[in-house]
Each structure stands twice: as structure tokens, then as C-alpha cells.
Design a protein around this nucleic acid. Sequence first.
RNA 1: GGGCGGUUAGCUCAGCUGGUUAGAGCAUCUCGUUUACACCGAGAGGGUCGGGAGUUCGAAUCUCUCACCGCCCACCA
Length: 954
Amino acid sequence: MIEKTYQPSDIESRVGRQWEEAGAFRAGRPGRETAEPYTIVIPPPNVTGSLHMGHALNNTLQDVLCRFERMRGRDVLWQPGTDHAGIATQMVVERQLAERKEPGRRDMGRQKFLDRVWKWKAESGGVIVNQLKRLGASCDWSRERFTMDEGLSRAVAKVFVRLYEEGLIYKDKRLVNWDPKLLTAISDLEVQQVEVKGSLWHLRYPLEGKTFDPEDPSSFIVVATTRPETMLGDTAVAVNPEDDRYRHLVGKHIILPLVGRRIPIVADEYSDPEKGSGAVKITPAHDFNDFEVGRRHHLPQINVLDIEGRLSLEENTDYKHGLPANSSYLIEELHGVERFAARKMIVERLDNFGFLEKIEPNTHMVPHGDRSGVVIEPFLTDQWYVDAKTLAEPAIAAVRSGETTFVPKNWEKTYFDWMENIQPWCISRQLWWGHQIPAWYGPDGKVFVAETEEEAIGKALGYYVEQEVITVEQGREMALDRNKREGFITRDEDVLDTWFSSALWPFSTLGWPDDTRDVERYYPTNVLVTGFDIIFFWVARMMMMGLHFMKDVPFPTVYIHALVRDEKGAKMSKSKGNVIDPLNLIDEYGADALRFTLTAMAAQGRDIKLATNRVEGYRNFATKLWNACRFAEMNGCVMPAGFGPTKAKLTLNRWIAHETSIAGREVTEALEAYRFNDAANAIYRFVWNVYCDWYLELAKPVLTGAEGDAKNETRAMVAWVRDEILKLLHPFMPFITEELWAVTAPRSGLLTLADWPLRAQATVAESGLVSLMAGDPLAVVPAAVAAEPELFSDPKAEAEIGWVVDLVTAIRSLRAEMNIPPATLIPINLVGVSEETAARAKRWHEMIGRLARVESISIEPTVPRGAVQLLVRGDVVALPLKGVIDLAAEQARLDKEAQKVEADIKRVDAKLGNVDFLSRAPEEVIDEQREKRADAEARREKIREALERLKAVI
RNA sequence: GGGCGGUUAGCUCAGCUGGUUAGAGCAUCUCGUUUACACCGAGAGGGUCGGGAGUUCGAAUCUCUCACCGCCCACCA
């Protein structure tokens, strides 16, 4: 029994439990062990996360695909899991500690802090998973993974070691993006360039051997900088070799103001004569370009900052490089000063001594940490790198060759642009939460990279015995006794970039490297569904790692979906306060309505501007479906076993079967092409505008009429179409359809495991015939034909019911226009119509009367005087309405129609009168125009006659 | 500076490989006989497809250009 009203919240939790209890989403479930697999890995959300609109869209689309393929008989594995999200998670827990006034992470120590994070994860890490379940995500939750699971951690270690051994991971001292707040290196991708209104300071650097005089330009060289505080680390001034202004100074030296260090003027292409003064200060330790210039000219790298971005000079031996013995009088004051305060102090001092020429306002891009929001420092440190350039090559080739394609295709350009200019990937992070780097250092600093500490110690002992650092005996003792080797080697403190483990997700989640049976079955995955914002972070890296370790792309298709924005097109953000919480929408309208909205709006290559009234509209759609099913129930519509469209005899029933198969094909084809919006719209239109608006209305007289074959067949067909609708709609609205499936008939199984109306591969029956519509044993054709499935089709039924629909619509429209009260029943005449039409009219007489408020239909040879005239699929329909209608209104209506026809004819004539058109357009286009012309001509004639008759009456 | 995308009804959007009378939902207006549904039904109004030029027999659709909007990338002093 269907409840009177549709209450999404009730049924969603109940249905969710049913799926779970049935293990409906288990990969390899009984009956599907040998079915063709279909795999998607979820983009693992951060454990710290909660469901936002982007997740809702991303997972809805994946779920639509998974449910679709599951119903098509595939063995679906939708692999779920979460990401440990190094920085984000560590920040969350640290914030919690601060709030609770507990000791900070450093006071606590590494191990205690990690225990604390795990505890946090156990308590709060499951939020997003439950939210995904509320959305209806049909993941195989029994396989949920976490990037820091034991198994995944082993995969990470293995990959690290192998890449290290292959020379594709290495340690290097170079400039990194340093976050002085989080105290870690970050990758290029985690840096956001932000436009900042700053200044350009022009500094005078005195030339060696001249007496510095601010009034005498020949005594100094001017350099312009946006970062005056880094001047303490300058080790050269560069000018362009082609720049005549400075050519004579190349090879000379300047004396660095305030500091007194003697540094050279070098010629380097990097210096752009157009920029600033044409001379540029070189600070190799604090600027990426300067670092390169410094390398070319073998300049010292003088680091003047500490890890927190304060000036660090006192103990800095680098800094003292090249300083005259008595020159450090300024250092004491500046040491330990925060970088921006130091900037102010240094500029002040430079100004006092006449070294500041001028300050220009200057807007420029400044790098900021995407997590911390503070200005990033280029900072000289030892870090681990992945040789991304080498790994990128096969990943580029795979997309070039079409092994992996992007949908929509234009994202491939973005992918190529980035991959072809890829930089070494800095993978070490000075954090605690994450995969600790599997590298150990011996007493002399030598690195031993191994999957486990045991292995590392083995390698180390072997090495040091061979080097005779320790004796064979000592080595043996240490190997056997843990205590003896305590502290002999120490592990690298750093952890890996979170994206390092995410890059392995498509195979690490399947058990690689330990148990690879699932890898064989489910890798490569079928499609990756994700947003464009992580093409670089994630997609590219999965491509690289997948190809390198699996020797195969991780997915043949990457479906890139849009960003969900607010109604006005602005990015949703907490600071703007325009965030729409998907859970609120689910509470208010139901998960099905939200899902349908997102799919209906997911047109390729376009952002989604989400308006809540759309969600409301699709909730209404769910209600409509609900009520249609109630109607079927009330009328005792049940489908006897073995019933199918080919069994139907009534035209009306054959017509709806015909329309159903069209809808089924539309939905299927759209989903196969990832045109989610087309798929959603096709089923929407069919349910509302065909099934509800017409079929059920037209079936009412039969359903309320006398018992008999016609009634039984119609009941069966109402139920059959309803079931087809529930199937076609299930990927989009899984909850309501599953619920209705259960309550509308006794069923042997869940809808989510039922057969899709069009099977991907038609099943060959014993007879050698192939069933094209699941559930209809009679809709069979020889296997040879099945290669191109034709659906149930009945053009004659379409012609007949289509005519009825058009007729009713035309009469209704006219009645509204003529202001004929609904209570007034009117007669209609069919004028000079064919026998076929006459027969149709007779068959549908009662129905037309009911839907169009018509009292009688008669066949007449001519249009009676004073009748209003309509055209329906070429037939003339006259409405003798003298006295009922407003003649002036009718005249206006006809005039308007006439105008429209004239316009049509004019347009068509223009084409047909064009010699070029006739000679160059394809035959069928010309024929089409001719038909249109003939049709319009006929219409014009009819309207003209109607007008004349009207005039006669007036 | 480079790249990508957008500009279609009052609003939010479809319109795939050029040939439709340019569609949908919401909103608006009119009406509502009928026990599935007022979260409903019937009907209507509303668009020179951002501007200009071009290619073509034919352009919302292809090309160029201009304008405005958005995003991504980039080390520029």
C-alpha cells in the first residue's frame, strides 16, 4: 500500500538500510562473479571533510553510472574511501588541542600526537562517509579504504623504494616553496598567486672604488626590488649583456649597503632592460630566478631567514660570507625580526644613508600558501623530489594516443600544457601526519631507503661492515639484538605529500602489492569522474603512477565535471556566506530531488549555478511519480507474469509501449555518452508529459469501465510502464524508485539489481532469439539482428494516439483563447476526412469528449457557416460555435494564424526560389522544404476559407 | 603575459557533428469540469540567440573581430 504523501526522509533511511542488508553493492556478489566488471574509484574525500555541493555532484554522477551499469548486469565495484589529508587533518587536531588548552603538538611529541590524530579519526572521521550514504552513493562500503591503512601504507613504501632505486626519487637541496606558518615545504600546486598592492623600491648600490654620493649617479647602480629585506642575502647584481647603459660595469663590484659585502656585477640574460632600472639584485637563496642566475655564475647562496620567516643573521655563517671583519654592526638589531617588520627597518636605514632612490607603487603577484594563507618563502632546504618529467612522458603519450580520453575533450589541452612543463615534484613535508618517508640515515648521514626498518638496518649494517666502519662481529650483534642497534640509524622525520598516496589509489585500494587478484579483475578502472580543479593534483599523478607500476592507464575515460556555484555564478565559499549545504537540501527536498537536480544540470563543459527552486521542482517531480503509482495501485494495475508490450493489442497500450522504448533508448544513449542532463530530461519528460499527462488520462475510461480483456490488458500495461519508469529513473532517484518498486508489487529482488530495460548485451535465449527489452520474453529477434537493437515500435499506434493528443490539445487551446467556459460542452465536425480518421474519431470519441469537453463528433462534407476551424495533422476540424464564441476574437485569432502561415511560406519560398539552394542542398533537405511549403499552402487555404466564412456570418 | 570557457525568454539553463516554427524548469498572466496528484490540471504571453564582419544555398551552431564576465596557468625586479 503506497502512503498518501511522499515523505523522502522516511523512505530514504529505510531504503538505505535495505541495500546495505542485502549487500546490493558488493563487488563480485553472488551471480555476478563472472560478469564483466565495471570499476570506478571514488575521489577520496578528506577525512576531515563534510559533504559540500562539489562532493554531491561528483558522487551523484558516479552513482548514476554505477547504478546504470549494475542494472545492465555488470559486476560493479565502486571503490570508496577517504584521504588522510596531511596538512588539513594535522591542522584540525592542532586547533582542537589549542581550543581545549591542551599541550601543543611539539610539547606532546610525535608519537603521542599521532595517537591523538588516530583517535580523532576514529571519532570524527566517518562523517563524510555517512553523508555519502545519505546521498545514496552505492559504493561497496565493505571495501572502504583509507590512505593510511596498513595495506595502502605498504603500497606507498613499495612505490617510494622502487622509484628511489630507479633514480626517479631523489633528495636535493634547492629552493622550495616554504610555508613559514605551517613550517613545511609545499608543492607548486599548493601555492596560490595572489595579486597584492605593494611597492617597488629603487635602491642605490655603491660602486666599489668610488665615493658614494647620492647626487652622483656614476657612484652607484640602481636596482629595483619588491622585497628589500632580502638584500641582506644579495650576492650579485645582474645586468643584461646587451644593455649599453651597464656594459662597462660588468665585472666590477658593488659594496652592499648596510652590510658591506663586496659583490660582483654580472651579465646575465635574465636581467631585462625594460624592467625596473635594468639592473637586478640577485639573491640566490630567496628567489627562484635568482637561484638559477646564482648557479650560472657560481654565486654563494646566503640564507638570511629562519623557518618562521624571521631574519636569521647572528649565527649564520653563510651570511658572514664575504663580509669585512667590522661590518656587522647592524646585525644585532635585525636578527630575529619578522620579515615584514624587517623590511620596514631596512628600508628606513637605507633611506637614512641615501641608498633609497624612490618608492613606486606596484601591484604584483605574491605567492601564498593555499592552506595557511601566508606569504610563501622560497627557501633553501633539503627535500625529496620525484622526477615527474620522466614519469610524465608515458602519461602524455597515453592521452595523445587516445588510450585515455577526457570528456569533454578540451581538458586534454590543460593536461598537456601542464604535463609538458612539469617540474620536479617536491614530495616531502615537514609534518607528522602522513606516510613517514621510508629512508634512514646512518651515523655518517648516508641514506638507506627500504620498505621497512628491518630492511634498512640490514642494508646499513652490510654497508658499514663493508666500509669497515663497524666490524663483522658488531654488525652481527646489532642485527640480532634490537637494543644494540638502537639509534644506529635514524628515520627521516618527514612525511610524504598527501597526493603521493592518492596517486596510487586506483591500484592500492585493490590490494596491490600484496594481493593482486582484485587488481587483475578491476584494474584498469572504467572511468574517473572528477572536477577540473584536481586534474594536476590527482589525475595527472594517477596517470603517471598507474602507467609506471601497472603498465596500464588507470582509466580509459576521465569525465571532468563542472564546479557548483551559487545562483549568481559565484564560487561558494564560507567567507562569502553563499554556501548551500547539500544536507540541508536533502533534509528539505530529499536526496532524490537533489540528485536529479544535479544530474539535470550537469551539461558538459558548463558550471552549475544552483538555484534551490530547481530542487523544489524536481521534488515535485518525485511527488508526481509517487501519485502516478498510487493511481495505478488504486486501479488494481498489476502485471501478470509473462506480460510484455508485444502482447498488447489495444492501440493505446501499444502506443505507450512504443513511447517507453523511445524513452529507454534516449536515457541509455545519453548515459553512454556521459550526457547526464539529456538522460535526466528524457526520463523527466516521459514520466510527466507522456505517461502522466496522456497515457494515464487516456486509460482512465478503460480502467474505470467494465471488466474484460481491454481492462486487464490496460492494467497490465500501466504496471509494465510504471516498472520500466522505475528502472529508468532508478540511477537518478534511487530511493523513491526502490521504495515504489517494493510497494507496488510483490518482487523477488531489489530494483537496484533489476535488469535495465535495454540490456547492454542482449541475452541470447534458448531459441536463438534475443530479448531486447528485459522483462518481455516476447520482444525477441534473431541474434543476428540484436547487434543493432531495435526496440518495440509501432508507428501506426503512434499515428493514431498522436492524432488524438493533437486534436485534444488544439481544441483546448482554442477554447481557452475563445473564452469558452469549461462547463460548456461543444460539438465538433470533422470535415471531409478520410475513413481512417473517421474510424479514429469513432474509437476515441468518448475520450476526446472527456478531455476536450466535446459533446459530439460528426463527420461533415463541408464546414458549416459560422464555424471555427482547426487543422490537426492535416485534418480539418470545425467547431460550429455560433453564439458561443466571440466573433471578433475568432477573427483576431485567424488573422494571427494567417500571418504566421504567410511568414512560413515566405521563408520557405525564399529557400525554394534560390537556385543555389536547389542545386547545392541535399535532396532530403529540399524535399523537406517542399513538403513544408505544401503543408503551409494548405493551411493558408483553410485559414482563408475560414476567414471568408466568418465575414459572411458577421 | 599565455590558455580555457561563457554571453540564448524576467531568472537558472538545454540546443551534440550547420537545415527546428530556437526549447525546458521556475517566475508571470488567464481559466479550472474531472476522487492519482494544488508539490496539481488546461491554456497563454515572453527571445533581432552580446555587437560587427565573414564562410555557406542556408549560421544560435563554423571563422575572424570587438565588448563584457568567469576560471586556470606563469618567476618576472
